[in-house]
Simulated assay, not measured.
Amino acid sequence: MTSGQVQLLGATAIRELAERYDVRPTKQWGQNFVVDANTVRRIVRVAGVRPSDVVLEVGPGLGSLTLAILEQAARAVVIEVDPTLAAALPETVATLAPTRAEDLAVVQADALRVSELPGPAPTALVANLPYNVSVPVVLHLLETFPSIERVLVMVQLEVAERLAAAPGSRTYGVPSAKAAWYGEVTLAGTVARSIFWPVPNVDSGLVRIVRRDPPQTSASRTEVFACVDAAFAQRRKTLRAALKGWAGSAAAAEECLRAAGVDPQARGEQISIEGFAAVAAARSRVSA
């Protein structure tokens, strides 16, 4: 697919579409539409979208990124919660990318409730995510669709930094640890607020996730994530104290930590997802 067969949206076209469909961006759904064609092409390029990819997009809005995805991918499957936007998108694609109209599937739903998609399984997730649900959406889709090999999402810069943070950094926390369960997470760039309409009061960041196998552990993902949640519920406390309720007592928490080779006086922000997996597995052995 070459760029000449797909016409991308600019600021004027975005506003014309919004007027045609009587769309007013709402804070409720975190709608900020990308009005810069260079930015959506950059997102698709950084995502490494291939001609064989089935790309899942969440919150396509008026279709800026969708069109850029269809420039490169075999197929785009989009999830849009706004019924007006979901109904308008096929018409926009048919007009601006007529040869690709059949390669678009629109699911009108809340992404956090989606458990199945039409057609072939998605191989990549590429999206401009609403700030208020970005982390839950990424984690839910990675868990629900194991076929997703690569992720490139645009989120609030602060959220991007948290997702990509490494153990020991000030911003490392629950999102960082849980995202690392699924793959290698990196900050892939920043995006100025000026490329959005309406212009948000924050800058954005690009987060890349390349899926890999989760840590080898006898504990389930649910058990490991429960340990992560407990460790960060009281960030300033040592793990011995923070995991007291999770393990049953401070002494039991210390026993689990020592069995996993983790210092009971350490704090959650110092522990990798592999460390949390080891602690969760140790709890099963200690309580057996």
Rank of each mutant, 00 (worst) to 15 (best):
A124Q: 06
V191T: 14
G183A: 14
P200L: 04
V153H: 04
F33N: 13
R240A: 15
A282F: 04
N128K: 03
P175S: 04
E161F: 02
E71G: 11
R162G: 06
S204N: 06
V107N: 07
T222Q: 15
A127K: 03
V207N: 02
R170H: 13
N201F: 06
Q108M: 04
G30P: 09
D203E: 13
V185E: 11
E184T: 10
R75W: 00
E158L: 06
G30F: 09
V279S: 11
A18K: 08
N128F: 00
P130A: 12
F33K: 11
R162P: 07
A288Y: 01
V174I: 15
V138F: 05
L62E: 05
D229W: 02
A250W: 03
P122T: 06
Q234A: 10
E80H: 02
V155D: 00
N201M: 10
S176P: 11
V126L: 09
R24Q: 14
S147C: 13
I148M: 06
T123L: 03
A188I: 14
N38I: 04
Q72N: 02
Q28L: 15
D22I: 00
V35R: 12
L70G: 00
A266V: 05
P215A: 11
G48K: 10
R45T: 15
E269S: 03
V191P: 10
R285M: 14
E223D: 15
T66S: 09
A86Y: 04
V155L: 00
T26N: 10
L163P: 01
R221D: 08
A277E: 12
A165R: 08
V228F: 04
V151K: 09
W29P: 04
V137M: 10
V191R: 10
R208I: 09
